[in-house]
Amino acid sequence: MATPEDVARLRQLKETEPLQVAWDDWTSTRKVLEDMTPLLNDPDPAMKALASEEASELDQKLSNILKETLPSLLVPPSTTANLSALVELKSGVGGTESSLFLATLLRMYMRFSQSNSWQATVVADNENEGGGIKDAIVEIKGVGAYDALRWESGVHRVQRVPATESGGRVHTSTVAVIVLPLIEEKDAQKEELYSMDDIKLEVMRARGAGGQHVNKTESAVRLTHIPTGITVSMQDERSQHQNRRRAFQVLSARLMDQKITREIAQRRATKNNLIKSADRSEKIRTYNYAQERVTDHRIGFSVMNLTSVLEGDALQEFTDRLRQDFEETAMEDMLNSES
């Protein structure tokens, strides 16, 4: 008779199976290497060369298992692996120049999404009168979108001579990016992120007498989540129904983001570790046009092909390295907590 404990044990066994496979692979490979070591001193030069070639292959395999396979199995699986992303962009310092660069970044993320086969839709945007876009929200739907893009959150800085600058001086402007986890409506209910009792829904602007007296389109809505004070306004669509749906989507994403941040903080607090800052006002990346250079300040990594980054292609190098950095940090956290 199987008891609940048996089932739990069975599940644990099943989950650690890949680890067992990797460990067996490691020990058997090592055994082969040990067994053939005497052949490295074989008097026959042909045999000796053959052995040395094989030994170096085995050595390579062992170091692969050690450096890649085992660590990737030890990092806890991402709980956000399936989530789509909501990317918010806001102009920072630099006025119109900042809005122009925001439009460039927006295009970069749209193209990056396309090459990853994610569906990207601009759900809200405000044009800047002098050119460019003041702020925008993009919905990026697809498995893994959030995990790939989450490290894009932070301040992006551009250094270039603006088209409008006659003196040829280099200006520095910024755009703030916030990447939020996007969950489906039905999952939002499952996560119990909010209760409808905690939400104040307002239709904005007075309508005078209203009714037949007025035929202005009135579709703007504002949601307030009372416990957190988060407010979301949506007015981009002609349909109030759509604006309301979008507003709830953004609210869910913000609350989910807070939940994830809270969980990470709790985990770290229990381990009594130093928390690596996830400050969103931190300057994370510089795009320098004169040098064709993009540098990520968190990992000290540069790509000397700004055009390719802005086309969305070389952005992959940043997202891959940032994810790797995150996994390594997670490993270190784990090791430190063991001691």
């Binding site: 239709v203 309508r207 209203g210 009714g211 037949q212 007025v214 009135e218 349909s239």
Partner: peptide, 16 residues
């Protein structure tokens, strides 16, 4: 969640 046709001079549906 419906999209209704509007043609002058028929009264435009109001949010109220």
């Amino acid at each position: 969640d419906l999209d209704l046709l509007c043609r002058a001079p028929v009264l435009i549906p109001r949010p109220e």
